[in-house]
Amino acid sequence: MPELTLDGVRVTVPAGTTVLAALQNAGLSPLRRSLSGEARGALCGMGSCYECRAVVDGLTVRSCLTPVRDGQNVCRLGEVNREL
């Protein structure tokens, strides 16, 4: 099972999981803050809404479209922007 880092914490999740599900199952909510400071989480689950953006190995991606991989470093956007 892939072992990855979510906001600095190491977790092991089943292969085939999305990065989004890994974040959600770890209770890491909200995923980001909106322009006016609202808490936000994933909406569509299929790559349209862009609410689930997260930084994976230095690149901003839609976490719902990104499968987990061993050694991945995942940070919530809000964590990176120091706004959570």
Binding site: G16, A21, S29, L31, C44, G45, M46, C64
Partner: peptide, 17 residues
């Protein structure tokens, strides 16, 4: 957070949620 699409929640669940 927690308000999601109907198909959205299904997709998230299939993704491991």
């Amino acid at each position: 957070p927690g308000v999601v699409g109907a198909g959205g929640l299904q997709a998230m669940n299939k993704g491991g949620l």
